[in-house]
Amino acid sequence: MGTSEPKAVSGANPGEHAAHASPAVTYEAAKLGIWTFIATEVLLFGGLFTTYIVFRTKFPHMFHADYVHLNRVLGAVNTVVLICSSLTVALGIAAIRKGKQGMLRLCLVLTILLAAGFLVIKYFEWTEKFAHGLYPGTDVFFSLYFMMTGLHGLHVLAGMLVLGAVLVLAGQGRFSESYHTPVEISGLYWHFVDLVWIYLFPLFYLIG
């Protein structure tokens, strides 16, 4: 019965464990954690994308007749706004990797402002729809439009809060070349939020 020799346990690495986790393990755990979280988010939106496919197949004419009501210019502007915000957050991560505190703060402020800009434009789009009597209950197309852009909008809002918290920490000088896990984690989340919009934009505004 494979009895193994007793082995000295002293010198084992207590530092490898959560209560006193080493930075390397914390970093790896956080990375795996955020990717898993993004996977759950993909599945959350996945339910809506499935619904989109089902009803687009069922009512192609409705989709064609309805999509003309959407404002392509505002949609395109918002796409550019979000892509820029992805750029600024990436620049922020690049900056703190070189230890540039001020640049990180500037990038985070810009990202949050761009996100706010996105939501303002979205607000005008929605009110325009309401003014024309187009509501979530109007038909399946607008149900999908409001549900998907609405849920995405909530994620933008959540992203702003997260980036805001990171900005506060950055303001306190918590990050450095060697430690910037929260910046990277929130950055990854922000890229995901942008990516969802990259799919929403053509699905609603471009392919009728």
Partner: peptide
């Protein structure tokens, strides 16, 4: 992790 988000959206 994989299944619960789907019932969430449902």
């Amino acid at each position: 992790v994989v299944a619960t988000p789907v019932v969430g959206i449902t």
